[in-house]
Amino acid sequence: MSAVQLRGARVLITGASSGIGRALAIQLASEGAVLALAARRSTLLAELADEISAAGHTRPQVLSTDLAVRGAAAELGPRAISELGGGIDVLVNNAGSSLTGAQTRIADSDAARSVFETNVWAPLALTAAVIPAMRAAGRGMIVNVTSTIQAVPIPLLGYYAASKSALAQATRSLRLELAGTPIRVLEVVPGGTDTALRDIDELPWKGTAPKTLPPISPEAMAAAMVRAISRGNNRLVHPAYSLLPVELPIVGRLVATLAGARVDTLGALDPIDQLFHRKPGPETAR
């Protein structure tokens, strides 16, 4: 584990227009990082860049993109490297999207494929795009934001769970692939976080939704991420109690079974396409 110097570090954050991505951008800027912010909503990105600049920090580069479009991530990598002066020290794959609905209705539709494009293929493409510059510089960190839902297969959230599970496995494999290089790989596993991607409120519950622990704020999640990045950690699960289903899959399956019994899976549910801030957001999480 090697520390990462944040002052002057060049950081690309996807899904930066709201939620965890936005909070992370503000906190990294306060640490002296030089940022490139990517998301679909360019107006929100510009407002965030203005806020960071007004606080006396280096104004971030604003890079509007839709990572649900195939090829967008591969184009974003070189563009960000150029805007940041020829390199990237930290890539934060934070963008995320979700889709609530029955797999038997949604199948492999365009809406379903866009979830995997954003949550899986975009992070892999961006990583491949920036790794050569990191290896040439002799340093770098890839940060992939997954979710505790990788271990909690709740009905009607199968697309989000499967995509985050895929990204989690790819992240662990990438860490081993890069073990002989100076590049670090950090998996961030958010627990329940108060972002627009909290689709638990969209599920068709039988009666009232079950009580859950209060979600943490995006700012608290971002603060934990800043610490993990600066320390060069391999994994961050936050809050700490979220470790339970991740480390003990039987717990996650039990939670999913109990919660699933309260979801109206047989009702006339129309697919609900939730393509929120791509990361976020995600950002994020249960």
Rank of each mutant, 00 (worst) to 15 (best):
R286C: 00
P78R: 01
S53W: 08
E51N: 13
Q274M: 13
L12N: 01
A95I: 00
H238L: 04
S109P: 07
K279C: 10
L275F: 15
S18C: 09
L24D: 03
R105P: 01
L67I: 05
E51S: 14
Q61R: 15
A179K: 15
E75H: 14
L213D: 06
I142H: 00
L244G: 05
P239V: 04
L254P: 01
L167N: 02
V90I: 14
L157K: 08
G71D: 01
A285P: 08
A209K: 13
T104K: 09
D66N: 15
T195K: 04
T104L: 10
L45R: 12
K206E: 10
T193E: 02
L67E: 00
Y241H: 13
V62H: 03
L6I: 08
E83S: 12
G252A: 06
I149K: 02
F276G: 10
A133W: 01
G267L: 09
L248M: 15
R235P: 02
P282T: 12
R22N: 14
A23M: 00
S230E: 07
G267Y: 07
L203Y: 07
D50T: 11
P239K: 01
A268I: 12
L213A: 11
P280W: 12
N233D: 14
Y160V: 10
V251D: 06
E47F: 09
I52P: 06
T104G: 09
T284W: 03
E187D: 13
D194T: 03
G21A: 05
L178K: 03
S18P: 05
P280Y: 13
N93C: 09
S42G: 11
V120Q: 02
L157G: 14
V263L: 03
L91F: 04
P239D: 02
L248S: 07
A179H: 15
S18N: 13
V185N: 08
S2I: 13
A240M: 10
G85L: 01
S114I: 14
L37I: 12
S64W: 00
S30Q: 15
D110S: 13
T104M: 07
L174T: 03
E283D: 10
D264M: 04
P218F: 00
A107S: 11
D108K: 09
A224C: 09
V185A: 07
A168N: 08
A29I: 08
D270G: 11
L156R: 09
D89H: 07
E283N: 12
T171P: 11
L124M: 14
K206Y: 07
A49I: 06
